[in-house]
C-alpha cells in the first residue's frame, strides 16, 4: 500500500501546449512526489487552468512538445477515463451541469467504474448509499443534493462541495484543484479546505491552481510555483506565498523581464 518512494508521482518535462494556434504553455517543468501539495499561482491568463485541463485530458489542447509521466507511464497517451481510474482527479473550476442525470446515479457510476478498474467489487445501491452518506457528513454536503440533477441549480458553494465529495469518494492519487476557492464565501471555503486537508496523506498528492493567496491560509502547500504567460517564473516553498501577498505579481514579472502584456517572453 505504501507509495513508491523512489519514483516521483508526476513528472512534467518541457511541456508546450497550444489552443487554437495560440501557444499557452511554453516549456513547463514540474515534478510532484507522493504526498506533496503544490500550489500553482499566477495572474489571469497565465495558463494555470490550461495546465490542469491538459493533465486531466480535456480535448481542445494540443501538446506540441514535451512529455508528462505519471506513475512511470506516458500520461498524455491515456484517455481521460483511464487517467481518472489511475487516480487523477480534476476538481473543475466550473463544474458541469447535467440535466436529467441524478447526482447519486452519477456518483455511483463513477465510483464503480474506478473500483472495477482497481479490481474491487462494484458497490450495490445499499452499500453505495452507506458510503456516500458517510462522506457527505464529512464534507458537509446536504443529502438532498444526492437526488437532484448533477450540479443543476446548485449554488457556487454547493458545486464546489460536490466536487470535493466526488474526490473523497474516488480517493485519487493526484488531485488537481482548479480554482477550487473561486466564488466561495468564507464558510464554504473553510469546509472545502477541511475536506481537502482530511484527504492529505503520504500516498496522495495535490496540485492546487489558484489566483489568490487566500486559499493557502487554509491549505498549506509544500511548494509554490508562479506561472506567468505560460512559464514558471519562480518556484519556492510556502514563504513565497507571504511575499506574493505583500508585493503582488508585478515584481516577479519584472524580474523575469516581462511587462504586463507578456512582452519579452520567448
Amino acid at each position: 500500500m505504501s507509495a513508491n518512494e523512489k519514483q516521483p508521482l508526476l513528472v512534467i518535462e518541457d511541456l508546450w501546449v497550444q489552443v487554437e494556434d495560440k501557444t499557452i504553455l511554453k516549456g513547463i517543468d514540474l515534478t510532484v512526489n507522493y504526498g506533496e501539495v503544490h500550489a500553482i499561482m499566477g495572474p489571469n491568463g497565465s495558463g494555470k487552468s490550461t495546465l490542469a485541463n491538459v493533465l486531466a485530458g480535456r480535448e481542445g489542447y494540443e501538446v506540441t512538445r514535451g512529455k508528462v509521466t505519471y506513475k512511470g507511464r506516458d500520461l498524455l497517451a491515456m484517455p481521460p477515463e483511464e487517467r481518472a481510474r489511475e487516480g487523477i482527479f480534476l476538481a473543475f473550476q466550473y463544474p458541469v451541469e447535467i440535466p436529467g442525470v441524478n447526482n447519486i446515479y452519477f456518483l455511483k457510476a463513477a465510483v464503480n467504474a474506478v473500483r472495477k478498474h482497481r479490481g474491487l467489487p462494484e458497490l450495490d445501491a445499499m452499500d453505495f448509499l452507506e458510503l456516500v452518506k458517510e462522506k457527505m457528513a464529512q464534507m458537509k454536503v446536504r443529502e438532498e443534493m444526492l437526488y437532484r440533477a448533477v450540479n443543476e441549480g446548485f449554488s457556487g458553494g454547493e458545486k464546489k462541495r460536490n466536487e470535493i465529495l466526488q474526490m473523497a469518494l474516488l480517493e485519487p492519487t493526484l488531485a488537481i484543484l482548479d480554482e477550487i476557492d473561486s466564488g466561495l464565501d468564507i464558510d464554504a471555503l473553510r469546509d472545502v479546505a477541511d475536506g481537502v486537508n482530511a484527504l492529505r496523506g503520504p500516498d496522495r498528492s495535490f496540485i492546487m491552481v489558484t489566483h489568490y493567496q487566500r486559499l493557502l491560509h487554509y491549505i498549506e502547500p509544500d511548494h509554490i510555483h508562479v506561472l506567468a504567460y505560460g512559464e514558471v517564473i519562480r518556484s519556492g516553498d510556502r514563504t513565497l506565498a507571504h511575499e506574493l501577498e505583500e508585493r503582488g505579481y508585478g515584481w516577479l514579472l519584472e524580474e523575469a523581464g516581462m511587462d504586463a502584456q507578456g512582452a519579452g517572453a520567448p
Binding site: 481521460p80 477515463e81 481518472a84 473543475f92 447535467i98 457510476a109 478498474h117
Partner: peptide, 18 residues
C-alpha cells in the same frame, strides 16, 4: 454536450457509458 461528456469521463466513466 462535450463538456458534460468530459466531466463524466474525468470521473472514470468510459466514453460509451458516458
Amino acid at each position: 454536450d462535450r463538456d458534460a461528456l468530459f466531466y463524466l469521463r474525468a470521473r472514470g466513466i468510459g466514453e460509451p457509458e458516458a
